[in-house]
Simulated scan of single mutants.
Amino acid sequence: MEQPQLRLRSMTVLLTPSQVAERAGVAVSALHFYEREGLITSTRSAGNQRRYTRDVLRRIAFIRTSQRVGISLAEIREALSTLPVDRAPTKADWPRLPRRWRTSLDERIARLQRLRDDLDGCIGCGCLSLKRCRLQNPDDTLGAQGPGARLLDPS
């Protein structure tokens, strides 16, 4: 059974950590982590319990989606810091956040495509010192160090 929502500010519905966690699909500990990292904020009830505004759900969705595509927490924090603090972000506020990442995401996609294409020649070979290995030994730089394995951990 869902807990009742508290109204601590006029016309603002505040959610408990468990309500936010359930609706966002994250653990309560993740909410606390996001808050420590400055990604989301909460208010406190009269009993000093955390309460979240509903717009935190959209922020969490943005955080999780951004992390899935490899955006760092620092970059996410910077993007979220551009959102208004005096009101819930509107539909118009959200599209501009990921625009700043377009170039770096395009570069990452290109690197991943090169990796995918280069792996075709490496899978199963087990040798990372081939003269033509563009992943671990571009231009056979390891060959200049003499014969034998150079990348294996001796322990």
Rank of each mutant, 00 (worst) to 15 (best):
T82F: 06
K131C: 11
R134V: 07
T16K: 13
L8K: 13
L112W: 08
Q5C: 15
L14G: 10
V26R: 02
R59M: 14
T12L: 14
R58H: 01
P4T: 11
R111C: 01
S104I: 10
G146L: 13
R150S: 08
L8W: 15
G25R: 01
S104L: 05
R134P: 02
T16E: 11
A79P: 08
R77M: 07
V56D: 04
G148E: 09
R64L: 14
R54Q: 15
L119C: 11
L39H: 00
A110H: 11
L105A: 06
L112N: 03
S42A: 14
R36S: 10
G146Y: 05
T53C: 06
L57F: 02
R150Q: 12
C133I: 04
P89Y: 05
D55F: 13
L73A: 00
L115G: 10
R23N: 10
L15T: 03
D117L: 08
W94E: 07
G70I: 03
L14Q: 15
L135D: 04
I71T: 10
D55E: 13
I63Y: 07
L97N: 14
G121H: 12
G38T: 09
C127Q: 10
A30N: 14
D120R: 14
R111L: 05
L57M: 05
D55M: 08
K131V: 12
T103F: 04
L152R: 12
P138I: 01
R68L: 12
I76R: 06
E37G: 00
L39V: 03
A21L: 01
L128D: 13
R108D: 11
L128P: 03
L15R: 07
T103M: 04
H32L: 05
T82G: 09
V20K: 02
P95M: 06
L31E: 04
C125W: 15
T43P: 00
S18E: 07
R87F: 10
E107D: 10
T103W: 03
R132V: 08
Q19T: 12
V56A: 11
L31K: 09
T12N: 11
R7V: 15
L83P: 04
I60R: 00
V28H: 02
F33P: 00
D106W: 03
R77W: 05
T12S: 09
S81F: 01
G25E: 01
P95V: 06
D120L: 12
R7W: 13
D118K: 01
R114K: 03
I40V: 13
I123S: 09
I71M: 12
I76P: 10
L97V: 15
R111I: 00
E75I: 00
S29F: 00
E107G: 01
V69Y: 04
Q67L: 07
L152D: 14
P4K: 13
E78F: 06
L142Y: 07
R51N: 04
